[in-house]
Design a protein around this nucleic acid. Sequence first.
DNA 1: GGGCTTTAAGTCG
DNA 2: TTCCACGACTTAAAGCCC
Length: 724
Amino acid sequence: MFCKSIRLFSHSSSSGSFSFETFRKMENKETAGDADRPWQSYHTVYTNAKAGMEGVDKERVQRIVYEMSKGSKYFENEERKEATIREKIENMRARCAQLTATDLSQYQKVADKRILELEITRDLSRIWLHVDMDAFYAAVETLSNPLLKGKPMAVGSMSMLSTANYEARKYGVRAAMPGFIARRLCPELILVPTNFEKYNYYSDLTRKVFHRYDPNFLAASLDEAYLDITEVCKERGLTSEEIAKDLRTSIYEETGLTCSAGVAANRLLAKVCSDINKPNGQFILPNDRRAIVTFISSLPIRKAKLLSQIGGIGKVTEHILKDALGINTCEEMLQKGGHLCALFSQSSADFFLSVGLGLGSTDTPQVRFRKSISNERTFAATTDERLIFQKLADLAEMLSMDMEKEGLTGRTLTLKLKTASFEVRTRAVTLQKYICSSSDILQHASRLLKAELPVSLRLIGLRISQFNEDGATAVFGPTQISITRFITSGDATRKSTGDCCSLNTDSNNHGFMDDTEIDTCINGYDTDPETHHQVSNQRLDNNFSNMDDSNCMSSNVAEKSEKLENLLRNVSADQANISTAIGSTSDSSDALIPRVSSTACASSRNLEGNPNNNVDDESQVEVRSPDNNGQIWWIDNYKCTICGAEVPASFVDERQEHIDFHIAEKLQEEESGIRSRTLTPRQRTADKNLLSSPRKHKRQKSTPKKEVKHIPIDLFFVKTNQKF
DNA sequence: GGGCTTTAAGTCG
DNA sequence: TTCCACGACTTAAAGCCC
């Protein structure tokens, strides 16, 4: 593979060509050295180490995996993918070599500034615990069949393993490995088929325990959860270490299963910590900045598997960081901040810097609505069109049934195909109407599939997205649906963070490359490292969990008003906090204000905006306030009298845009005489979608911009809901 | 140039 | 002897049209 030890990037301009050339030489040398052991350069997910695989003969595992894979279509595809990554790395190296000393010095300043700004957001007030059940599926199977105890076993099939117990891991067998390779590694391996009924049952038992420590815990999967144990530590007068021990004991007593725990100031660190003393162990990282920084910087990424532990950094990203930038430790993420800012988009660079600082989420996100629903099936590769269409019909039927169960309808249908050579293709169509019936799905999916024929396929998948926001839309209109979504979902959480900051995009683009200039972008990042980890956010006993849509419909205006008032009060409190924080940490606070936190983003607008926007005072009574032009009135200073849209006073620009919209609408009405005043912007869009032709509906220049900006109420809620 | 859609790709468990 | 999953999420780029 690539030489990993060379420092590619020096601040001297002459070093670029030297490094590049040296790299080539070293690479060739290493490649030549690999000739006898070609398996060394064949990396897959399952050749990496995992908990319980410390003593494994890695060379043997790699050789067997290589020998069993070599020559297969899968192997060829892996080689193609590997070549693409190499190309990306080469591009990045070349761009790196073009950076002058002046460039680098500039970018380093940008990075240093961002590091300071991110540092201000550090929150050490919460204690998070991450629980990870040890080899969960395998442990459950052993519980129900004690004969398996002490023997190497894995859950899954000959084609793929879901997990392996610790006895099997000693042989290099692990999750996501094909069963036939695992058998070769460990001939006595016992294979047990998956039984999700059992795993769900035991998962429920563990969740009952989690619930006692944090009723709002976040279930990341069947066998992982995040708990905010700040309150329970206080209530019981116990340390986090004692709580972790106590929880693990309870889990064991009530399920017979062991688990590992990590405790830290945020979820990202807690997750890293839970892996340190696996299995059946725990690791506590004190809520102390120095301890965190020492912990992060003393961990070599590779050795501690830290990179792969961090959500959002997978095989490709790890490869790029190491081989293109020579970043091997979290500490180096900070040291090479200038390079990161120069070569990655702002959101990606922010993410890497946050990881280097050991920052992560400390708030409890809301429940999220799913964004898509899909199914896919793998089968023996075939070109038989009759068979392929039969598979498609089966999938359409299954998908339709799944959608029916959840009461979903959607208008974007995506067909996924994997060819016999493992090439993955996706083809999508966005429809005018929302569909859920198998006949509708099949009809549109067939059309997409026909365009791909003839083809030899080994997998077909169907996905529906862009869901209808259910019947509540019709009853409440867009603003209320936002409240509904706020209560029942955290969908807006992520969006709001981005949107919040995007409000200040111009002023915040501290010299980062435009995203359009980036040809190698890291996917899945925003400024908050924790959001990269896909938490399913299954909050049990959430404060609002009993408020389904029907409840929301019956919930009265007073109740919502009260919520809003409370939240508005929080804004004022946050403003005060932020003013204090900024005042005490920085002299040039202007640049920092929008970056402090999501809350700060919201609040900073209050600080920067109209000083008369004292939302706390104005939210107490119903006030109809005229805007600058005196034509639009805001009930309680947040609700538009024309369409009912809720735009808090602090959202000055959004309000102005909203007003502009109504003015434009009025003008249009006068001109055309056909405008319906009762429709809100979003309703109007939906209305148009139904009526327009396939092409026309795409181009709704007049409304979308307003529509996008016009969801402030849920953004507002989320912003104010976050802790500073 | 901006908004929307499609497509590709990465990541997680 | 068997021959590398599935279902969710995300960001980004490119193409299209106004």
